[in-house]
Simulated assay, not measured.
Amino acid sequence: MTTITRTAPAVVASPRVRPAATARHVATLAWRSLVQIKHNPMELLDLSVQPIMFLLLFTYVFGGAIAGSTGQYLQFALPGLVAQNMLFASMTTAVGLNTDITKGVFDRLRTLPIARSAPLAGRIVADTLKQVWAFALFLGLGLVLGFRVHTGVAGVLGALALLLTFALAMSWAAVLVGVTAADQEKVQIMMFSLMMPITFTSNAFVRTDTMPSWLQKWVEINPVSHLADAVRGLLSGGPVASDAVTSLLWAAGITVVFAPLAVRAFRTRI
């Protein structure tokens, strides 16, 4: 007698899930990424060591030479360092996404009855929330070193909201790199090649008028310059509206360009 065995059909992530269910799936997977910090503290350490190192080095090594005193330079440079760290922290999104893909995590998630966009969106949301820790660490250490906020709680919250909005936009570029790169080493090379020129050819660390005239033209349109100036205004006082609006327009443009490319690359690879 022949026994007939039936194989249960594989459950494939549904592309049509109700918005409320999709939101729950995204929240669950974002929480998964955040909980990993408990088992792998190095993930949070990466977001902690760099802010401390850059803030101390730039303040006490370059501050006196650039601004005449470390106190004056700290007041100028901390908002720029926060903006720079936000861009470099987007590397964690690219590396984490690439790791999940190459190790088969997304293959396992794809067999679950969840929205197809949930794994990607969950990663982006979790990494954006991690930026809050880096911002708090920067600001807390800056206050200890002598930085002063002149705009109150509203200014701090406004700066954080602007930074998170820009970080969310940059995460789409990070997703594109993480999906298309073959391994983590290539992810890091590509991200550094993208972030280093943008951040160090801005006014995040030095004033625009101290640079060569040909470089000033690029600095004035560099999105990092507008973001740094907006954060300076929100934390230390001064003009905010123009730079904040420009930063938001840059964030919208980056999202419009990179989000479709990232989603297409993600669907092709997954």
Results as ranks from 00 to 15, higher is better:
193 S>H: 02
65 A>S: 15
154 A>V: 13
97 L>M: 06
202 S>W: 05
84 Q>N: 03
160 L>W: 03
122 G>S: 14
99 T>P: 00
39 H>F: 11
88 F>P: 04
55 L>W: 02
113 P>S: 09
153 V>D: 04
62 F>R: 12
215 L>N: 07
35 V>Q: 06
187 V>G: 03
132 V>A: 06
195 M>S: 09
69 S>W: 00
41 P>H: 10
35 V>L: 13
37 I>V: 15
97 L>C: 06
154 A>T: 14
252 A>D: 04
35 V>H: 13
71 G>A: 13
91 M>D: 01
44 L>H: 02
37 I>C: 01
7 T>V: 12
158 G>K: 09
70 T>V: 13
79 P>V: 10
266 F>M: 01
266 F>E: 06
151 T>I: 08
62 F>S: 04
4 I>L: 14
149 V>Y: 03
124 I>A: 03
208 T>K: 08
230 A>P: 11
78 L>W: 05
44 L>N: 02
159 A>R: 06
166 F>G: 08
11 V>L: 07
67 A>D: 11
62 F>V: 11
249 L>Y: 01
84 Q>V: 15
160 L>V: 15
239 P>Q: 08
105 V>M: 14
38 K>N: 08
241 A>I: 13
50 Q>T: 11
98 N>W: 03
245 V>F: 04
270 I>Y: 00
166 F>E: 00
229 D>A: 15
134 A>I: 05
29 L>P: 03
44 L>F: 08
12 V>E: 04
82 V>F: 08
58 F>V: 15
178 G>I: 05
71 G>I: 08
46 D>W: 05
210 T>Q: 12
197 P>Q: 07
56 L>A: 10
9 P>F: 00
234 L>G: 12
2 T>W: 07
9 P>D: 07
23 A>G: 05
65 A>T: 13
76 F>E: 04
203 N>R: 06
214 W>L: 07
48 S>K: 08
223 P>E: 09
109 L>C: 01
